[in-house]
Amino acid sequence: MSYFLKLNNVVKYYGEGESRMKVLNGINISLEKRKICAILGPSGSGKSTLLNVIGGLDSVDQGSIIIDEKTDITKLKRKEIAQYRRGYLGFIFQFYNLIPNLTVRENIQVCEYLASNPLSLDELIETIGMAEHQNKFPSQLSGGQQQRCAIARSLIKNPELLLCDEPTGALDSKSAKDILVLIENVNKKYGTTVLLVTHNVDIEHMAHMIIHMKDGSIVSSIENSNRKNAKDIEW
Rank of each mutant, 00 (worst) to 15 (best):
D178P: 01
A207E: 10
V181F: 04
S116T: 12
P118Y: 06
H208C: 03
K47P: 09
V104H: 01
K231I: 15
E234R: 09
N200A: 15
N97K: 07
D61Q: 01
K12N: 03
M1P: 13
L195N: 06
G44C: 01
D58W: 00
M130H: 12
S175E: 14
L119E: 01
T74S: 02
E126C: 13
N117A: 07
T103H: 06
T103N: 02
G129A: 08
Y84R: 03
N187H: 04
Q140N: 14
H133G: 11
M21W: 10
L5H: 03
R34L: 07
S19P: 11
V181T: 08
P42G: 04
G63E: 05
N229S: 12
H199V: 05
G46C: 07
V23Q: 11
I54S: 04
E223T: 12
A131Y: 12
V60M: 02
C164Y: 13
V23W: 10
K6M: 01
T103S: 14
E184G: 12
A82K: 00
P42C: 05
V186Q: 05
L102N: 12
S43L: 01
N52E: 09
V186W: 08
L57F: 09
K189P: 13
C111T: 13
Y113T: 10
I151T: 11
S142E: 08
A170Y: 12
D61I: 00
